[in-house]
Design a protein around this nucleic acid. Structure first.
Length: 469
DNA sequence: TTAGGGTTAG
């Protein structure tokens, strides 16, 4: 019906009028366009919606999205259609409106992707996004989960300070911060190796009266494991049990992995054997549990036991995965049994698993250490042929492999090419090359690389420079 | 939320 009205000449004039002026002189005209779009959108009559597109304003876009809050897919489709096909430049308010709608319908992946786009591509700061989310909060009948999502979006793009700014601002504004947001931030700190700051933020959270949930306890156990404080980690396990929180498989896996990393494989095995009994058959081991244990045995050089553990997992119905094989292949390689490593490669391919970058990196690394240049080159060509993408590990393995076998100039040529292609993500390759250049008394070359590190924002290890000069 | 691969000095 509304379309009929708008298909007239009069409508055409109205539409032109909307397009020229940013604000409506008559609010009811906005209502007419809004309602017309809604009617046609509801019936998926995109062609008719298209005819209204020249009359779109930020206000109408946001209103339409709110109108379709119970049909989030359609709301998102409309939002994307306007942005992509009509090249309409969405305002921050429109973005936030659709984000509220998406979070409320638990479409977190889409909401996170839009938030990340706002901060990474559009250049909005986390606090600017927060402010607009707050402004549109009530009108969108939103929930605090939207703020959790913003903290998550910040941590996902590595914006540590941004995430913490959001938490601080939410507290100041009286919105409160959910335990999920705290946990997400704490997890981010651990993943970035900031254990000291983790404990500061954790203490702050506890002092504010939050009750730790399972995830929070797991993070504390994870932090203790990272600090090699296994006894403290285990004591947290008892503290959570006392508080009525039942550990899950992640809790056990972290303790098992922690024990393995500290070389106490017997304790790791004991935990594995007791986890069912301790939880009344509530928690059973999974592939992660077994992979941790296999890795523990591999690092101790006890390869035959590692394979026995693999057989046990198969027996109880847990399929070995890519990580199981990557662990065993690396275990055999670092123990000088490359033949066994290749046997496992065949085995994994036979099971339908495709060797990835990690598997190639392991074998290439140990081939170089054995001075098998031809073998390493062959595998490098093979990974390129099979479209297995090299990563920063591959490049540093290549640099080290070439240097230690006397091919420093070739390493420098490759490094230059890798830098030109912007493929380097960390400073490992630089450090390796600088070390070998210093050893061969090529201080000018080392200094040149040092400059290249600064340009890329890598912070050199100063102790090195003292030695080389 | 947990599991696999790469560096230097001595």
């Amino acid at each position: 019906m509304f379309f009929v009205l708008f298909s007239s000449k009069r409508c055409h004039l109205l539409v032109r009028g909307f397009h020229v002026g940013k604000h409506f002189s008559n609010p009811s005209t906005e209502d007419i366009v809004f309602k017309a779009i809604c009617v046609n959108l509801r019936q998926r009559k995109w062609k008719l919606v298209d005819q209204m597109s020249s009359s779109l304003t930020d206000s109408i876009v946001s209103r339409v999205i709110r109108e379709f809050r119970t049909s989030p897919e359609l709301a998102l489709e409309f939002f994307k259609w306007v942005g992509e096909y009509k090249s309409f430049s969405h305002s921050l308010e429109s973005y936030c409106t659709v984000i509220h709608v998406l979070v409320n319908s638990r479409r977190y992946v889409d909401a996170l992707s839009l938030m990340k786009n706002l901060m990474q591509t559009k250049g909005y700061s986390p606090l600017e996004v927060l402010e607009t989310l707050v402004d549109s909060y009530e009108m969108c009948l939103s929930s605090p989960a939207v703020f959790d999502s913003l903290v998550r979006a910040c941590t996902q793009i590595g914006a540590t300070e941004g995430a913490f700014d959001v938490i601080k601002k939410l507290r100041m504004e009286g919105f409160g911060v959910s335990i999920h947001a705290w946990n997400n931030f704490l997890n981010h700190l651990l993943n970035f190796g900031e254990v000291g700051r983790f404990w500061m933020v954790y203490k702050e959270m506890v002092s504010l009266g939050y009750f730790e949930n399972l995830h929070a306890f797991n993070l504390v156990i994870y932090a203790f494991c990272k600090e090699c404080k296994l006894l403290e980690a285990i004591s947290q396990f008892y503290r959570m049990s006392k508080g009525g929180i039942i550990a899950n498989v992640v809790t056990f896996n972290m303790l098992i992995d922690g024990a393995c990393k500290m070389g106490d494989i017997d304790l790791a095995l004991k935990i594995l054997r007791k986890m069912r009994v301790m939880t009344g058959d509530f928690v059973t081991p999974n592939s992660v549990t077994y992979n941790c244990l296999i890795n523990g045995y591999c690092k101790l050089g006890r390869l035959s036991i590692a394979e026995e553990v693999q057989n046990e997992m198969v027996k109880i119905g847990i399929e070995p995965n890519l990580r199981t094989y990557a662990t065993l292949i690396d275990g055999y390689s670092r123990n000088g049994s490359l033949e066994e490593a290749f046997r496992l490669c065949d085995d994994m391919v036979g099971r339908g698993l495709v060797p990835n970058t990690v598997v190639y990196n392991s074998i290439i690394h140990w081939l170089y250490l054995e001075r098998d240049m031809a073998g390493a080159s062959l595998l490098l060509s093979d990974m390129i042929k099979k479209h297995v993408c090299p990563d920063s590990f591959t490049y540093s393995i290549l640099m080290k492999g070439l240097c230690r076998n006397g091919y420093i100039n070739e390493a420098l040529t490759y490094h230059k090419w890798i830098l030109e292609k912007n493929l380097i993500e960390d400073d490992f390759s630089h450090n390796i090359l600088i070390n070998y250049l210093c050893k061969s008394k090529n201080i000018a070359g080392a200094k040149q690389l040092l400059g290249s590190m600064f340009i890329r924002g890598f912070i050199p290890d100063l102790s090195h420079i003292w030695y080389s000069n």
